Simulated assay, not measured.
Amino acid sequence: MDYLKQGIDYMQEQKYEEAAQSFTQAIENHPNDPLGYINFGNLLMYMNDLERAQRFFERAVEIDSEAATAHYGLGNVLYEQGKYSEAQKPFQQAIQQGLEESDGYFMLGLSFLYEEQFKLAMPYLLRATELSPEDDEKLFQYGLCLAQLQMLEQALQMFYKVLQLNDQHSDAHYNIGVCLLYTEEAERALKHFNDALHIQPDHMLAAHAKAKVEEALLEQRNNQ
């Protein structure tokens, strides 16, 4: 019996206890095969048991240092614990070992982004958008990175692309508004703050920005 396949099937059916039993059997039968540990690590992540998941991914790496998905899993565990700087190395190793998927570049880019290392984040987030050009969240995060680097025109292009894919993305509207304020286009910025609030009435940043812009425009009109 293929216990790995059986365990994956159980995971997809959300039968997590049965999946754990299958992966345990796979590991017992093939203790030097990293796939059993990787899949068990993935299961533990689904169950939010991050400490145990980390041990399984680390064991997989010990068995096969070239197992890209083991490095990627370890990076995810560290990232989920907010250990962004520690997550960078396993994400980089996953890519070096051939994980040519957008999620690997995206997670590495985010781990730099959340450490405010924007120049380091940019090429990885860019690569993620090249591999997944229809993923609005990847485009959005790349846009945020560009905005942090004061590349406002390019950031606006990304945020508008996000809206083409998902016109209900309130944060894209808000960040378009912020970029437009920097280019002194207050009226256009106000429209996007209103759009953000229409989609998400409790968007506090948009509400605050809207109030400030309305106050400034009113003062401007009174002084004319």
Rank of each mutant, 00 (worst) to 15 (best):
P133A: 07
Y105A: 09
A207C: 08
A94S: 09
Q148H: 09
Q220W: 13
A155I: 03
S170W: 06
N223A: 13
Q154C: 00
R188I: 14
D9S: 11
L108Y: 04
K138P: 04
R188F: 14
L144D: 01
E17F: 11
N166F: 07
H169W: 02
L108N: 02
Y79K: 01
L120I: 08
Q21R: 12
N76Y: 02
Y160S: 15
Y37F: 11
L4G: 00
E116H: 14
G98F: 06
G36W: 00
G109W: 00
L197S: 07
I176A: 07
L218H: 08
Q224P: 11
N194H: 15
L197T: 10
M122D: 04
K210T: 13
F193P: 01
R52V: 15
A121W: 00
G82M: 07
R127G: 08
E115Q: 11
E28T: 14
M204T: 14
H169R: 05
E17S: 12
A87H: 02
N48P: 01
L120S: 13
L50E: 06
F91H: 07
N175T: 15
D202N: 15
L139F: 02
L78F: 05
P90C: 07
K212R: 14
Y105N: 04
I38K: 01
R59W: 04
A147K: 03
I63V: 10
A155W: 00
E51M: 06
E51S: 12
M11T: 11
F57T: 00
D202E: 15
Q14C: 10
